[in-house]
């Protein structure tokens, strides 16, 4: 069976020779229809760059290697012609910042209709009608009036839903969401997440969800890829990530989330130091400098992503595999 999207050994490099910066290293990823795969990490871990690379929206200075197969078909070609035909139609993307990604001088209705006219070759009137339908689908009240509004007349939540409407305009099979709710309030975020969940269930769309919010991941994702400084450090089904996090970085991320404690104000676990600059990665394990359970051999060679249990991969010399005593 071929996956909807199969990424193997994806590397993105900037510069060359001694000054080369490998911003994404050896990324493997597969997405099935109706599945939500979350790419999780902190600023600068390469998660957004991965999305841009899949859509071939990287700057010309980026060198991309590896294989990206969409329905078994290699789309990482030299000239980017294959992805051009798919982009916006079969594979759609929603960007983080809805204000900068919408054109301020066109009405949102026109902007939604644009991609319908381009890809589905529908006449203007029909496209406008469909745009209103799409606005309704993303739960915007009074869509007929809203279609005539300019982006600045809408709230942040509505703008993000307009972005969703544009992405959905041609019924994509794969949807890439880059921090879709980061700029939104929690109640609006909940509405947007509901739309994504519905889409996956009803239209069987495959989704790559890029986020730093482990709450959002817990809500929606099926599989989780944790990235750190360009590399995948852990990859597993969502339940395993939360119940048996094995990489010290994943464990650190989960422990750093402020949460309810019974009356007592407990100290949060912090990860000391900061994310290394990708140009100056330490030798050996990239997390060694910040790791709480670092040992001498961690500084030697780079640990490979290895399977530690069913479908659960971890790139660590000393993964913590002990199963917590939970009676499930």
């Amino acid at each position: 069976m071929t996956s909807l999207l199969e990424v193997e050994g994806l590397c993105v490099t900037f510069g060359s020779g001694a000054g080369a910066v490998r911003a994404v290293r050896d990324l493997d990823l597969s997405v099935e229809s109706g599945e939500i795969v979350a790419l999780v990490g902190e600023s600068g871990c390469g998660k957004s760059l991965t999305a841009l690379t899949l859509m071939r929206l990287t700057p010309p200075s980026a060198r991309v290697q590896g294989s990206v197969k969409y329905r078994g078909d290699q789309i990482l070609d030299d000239k980017g012609l294959k992805i051009k035909a798919l982009r916006g139609k079969e594979i759609a993307m929603v960007f983080q910042e809805p204000m900068t990604s919408l054109n301020p001088s066109y009405t949102v209705g026109d902007q939604i209709a644009e991609s319908i006219r381009l890809h589905l070759k529908l006449p203007r009137k029909q496209a406008a009608k469909q745009a209103i339908e799409l606005l309704r689908r993303v739960r915007i009240a009074a869509p007929e009036q809203r279609a005539k509004a300019y982006p600045h007349q809408l709230s942040g939540g509505m703008r993000q839903r307009v972005m969703m409407a544009i992405a959905l305009s041609c019924d994509p099979k794969l949807l890439i969401l880059d921090e879709p709710t980061t700029a939104l309030d929690v109640t609006t975020q909940a509405q947007v997440l509901e739309i994504v969940d519905e889409l996956r269930k009803e239209a069987n769309t495959g989704v790559i969800l890029i986020t730093h919010d482990l709450g959002v991941v817990a809500d929606l994702a099926d599989k989780v890829v944790i990235m750190y400084a360009g590399s995948t450090v852990e990859k597993a089904p969502v339940e395993s990530i939360y119940s048996r996090p094995s990489h010290p970085y994943t464990r650190g991320l989960l422990a750093a989330i402020p949460r309810r404690t019974d009356g007592v104000r407990k100290r949060l676990d912090e990860i000391p130091g900061t994310v290394p600059i990708v140009r100056e990665l330490p030798s050996g394990c990239i997390f060694a400098d910040r790791c709480s359970c670092v040992e001498v051999d961690c500084r030697g060679a780079v640990p490979k992503l290895e399977m530690i249990e069913d479908e659960h991969y971890c790139a660590c010399w000393h993964p913590q595999i002990e199963v917590e005593t939970v009676s499930l």
Partner: peptide, 12 residues
């Protein structure tokens, strides 16, 4: 209710 809990078992 809108804040997702970082635990899939609880959250879902």
């Amino acid at each position: 209710d809108a804040v997702p809990v970082p635990d899939p078992v609880v959250q879902r």
